[in-house]
Amino acid sequence: MRWGMVINLAKCMRCHACVAACRVEHFLPLHVTWAKLIAHEVDEGGVVDVSTYPVRCNHCADPPCVHACPTEASYRREDGIVMIDSDKCIGCRYCVIACPYQNRTFLSKDKDPGYFPGYAKTGFERKGRKLYPHQVGTTEKCNFCVERIDAGMAKGRRPGIDRDATPACVNTCQARALTFGDLDDPESEVSKLIRKYNGFQLRAEYGTDPSVYYIDYRIGGAPSNKAPEHARTGYNMKHASTVDRDAARRLGRSTVKGEAKQ
């Protein structure tokens, strides 16, 4: 098993929701972001390419950060997730330099002045400190929402399919630009997307074998505009649809009653 993510450049609209979801999920200090967006805006001979590369830790199969870590605070789990044990981290920052993708952040004091410097901490911040301590003087990064994966799997949920075992950024993306799943499973959604659209890793030449892949294509050209059954019925909303009595009468229909289906 190797957890991985596929990021669809043809869908990412630079909305920053993934960045926000990650901040909420991990009570991130004011100046820390684990998920970032890189803007790519070029005009190549009259062909304009505006893209956004959402980046986060690549959870590389051969992670230079782990190799650089002198205390074994950085390590790679069986399932491919690269982790930092903040109790072992001595803040030497070797890994910050070793990561060719600059995906690690050293949490210095000035990055954590509170959401409203000079004012009392908010309830969310105070709770966050207890639920999710961020230790000043250690290094941090995206952990693929390992808490959600572990807690979800313990309940029998499937990462990438069931929300409560899936990373927060993936769940919140309105464009559905992010897909999560097992790269080792050829039938997983991520593997299928990589095959179908020729997925690529960022700077594969660095040789770290990232678990985050990117896909891209032109929009349009769909062979059919026919709606599938689930779209026609209203995307399986649990709540029954109802029609205004007046409108129903004019349309010559009987009113549909609004009882919850569940």
């Binding site: 909305c15 929701a17 926000a20 979801a21 929300r163 309105q174 995307y235 909303m237």
Partner: peptide
């Protein structure tokens, strides 16, 4: 109908 998604403003 928004199927569990939210934008940065809402979050």
């Amino acid at each position: 109908l928004t199927r569990g998604t939210m934008c940065s403003k809402g979050l």
